[in-house]
Computed example of a mutant assay.
Amino acid sequence: MSRSKSASPRPGPASIEERRAQQREAARIYRAKQEAQGLYQTTVWLTMSQAVAVREWLRRGGDVSVLRSTGSTEGKGERHG
């Protein structure tokens, strides 16, 4: 039995540029959904000893209120360094 000529060939893997564009779009949508819930993600680099100290501080019930949104977007996106 032969295949019909109208059947389209199975698409190959997306090019790396297409895949990266898809990933960027998915990340943009995810960030928008999170921000709509009042959530904002940032990254902070710590030394291993600092990370251990922060984990211990959190385990002991450290005050995380400074990490919570106050509803203000002032300073959002600023980079200090």
Results as ranks from 00 to 15, higher is better:
Met1Ala: 03
Ser2Glu: 08
Arg3Gln: 04
Ser4Ala: 08
Ser6Val: 06
Ala7Thr: 10
Ser8Ala: 14
Ser8Arg: 13
Pro11Tyr: 01
Pro11Ser: 05
Pro11Ala: 05
Gly12Pro: 01
Gly12Ala: 13
Ala14Met: 07
Ala14Cys: 01
Ala14Arg: 10
Ser15Arg: 04
Ser15Ile: 01
Ile16Arg: 10
Ile16Cys: 00
Glu17Phe: 01
Glu17Ala: 09
Glu17Ser: 05
Glu17Cys: 01
Glu18Asp: 13
Arg19Cys: 02
Arg20Met: 08
Arg20Gly: 01
Arg20Phe: 02
Ala21Gly: 06
Gln23Met: 06
Arg24Lys: 12
Arg24Leu: 11
Arg24Ser: 03
Arg24Met: 11
Glu25Arg: 14
Glu25Asp: 14
Glu25Ala: 15
Ala26Phe: 07
Ala27Gln: 14
Arg28Gln: 11
Arg28Ile: 08
Arg28Lys: 15
Arg28Asn: 06
Ile29Asp: 10
Tyr30Met: 11
Arg31Cys: 05
Lys33Trp: 06
Lys33Asp: 14
Glu35Lys: 05
Ala36Pro: 00
Ala36Glu: 15
Gln37Asp: 07
Gln37Leu: 13
Gln37Ala: 11
Gln37His: 07
Leu39Gln: 10
Tyr40Asp: 03
Tyr40Arg: 12
Gln41Ser: 14
Thr42Lys: 07
Thr42His: 06
Thr43Pro: 02
Thr43Arg: 09
Val44Phe: 01
Val44Met: 11
Val44Arg: 06
Leu46Ala: 04
Leu46Pro: 02
Leu46His: 09
Thr47His: 03
Thr47Gly: 08
Thr47Phe: 01
Met48Arg: 15
Met48Cys: 07
Ser49Asp: 15
Ser49His: 13
Gln50Arg: 11
Gln50Ala: 13
Ala51Lys: 09
Val52Leu: 10
Ala53Tyr: 05
Val54Lys: 05
Val54Tyr: 06
Arg55Gly: 15
Glu56Thr: 12
Glu56Pro: 01
Glu56Asp: 14
Leu58Asn: 07
Leu58Arg: 08
Arg59Pro: 00
Arg59Phe: 08
Arg59Ala: 13
Arg60Thr: 08
Arg60Gln: 14
Arg60Cys: 06
Arg60Ala: 10
Gly61Tyr: 03
Gly62Val: 02
Gly62Ala: 03
Gly62Leu: 00
Gly62Pro: 02
Asp63Ile: 03
Asp63Glu: 04
Asp63Tyr: 00
Val64Phe: 02
Val64Gln: 05
Val64Met: 06
Ser65Glu: 09
Ser65Asn: 12
Val66Leu: 07
Val66Lys: 10
Arg68Thr: 08
Arg68Leu: 12
Ser69Ile: 04
Ser69Gly: 10
Thr70Phe: 00
Thr70Met: 04
Thr70Glu: 02
Thr70Asp: 12
Gly71Ser: 06
Gly71Tyr: 05
Gly71Leu: 08
Ser72Cys: 08
Ser72Gly: 06
Ser72Val: 09
Thr73Gly: 06
Thr73Tyr: 03
Thr73Cys: 04
Glu74Asn: 09
Glu74Lys: 14
Glu74Gln: 13
Glu74Leu: 11
Gly75Pro: 08
Lys76Gly: 00
Lys76Glu: 14
Lys76Ile: 12
Gly77Val: 12
Gly77Ala: 11
Gly77Trp: 15
Gly77Gln: 11
Glu78Phe: 13
Arg79Cys: 09
Arg79Ser: 12
His80Ile: 15
His80Phe: 15
His80Asp: 12
Gly81Trp: 12
Gly81Val: 13
Gly81Ala: 13
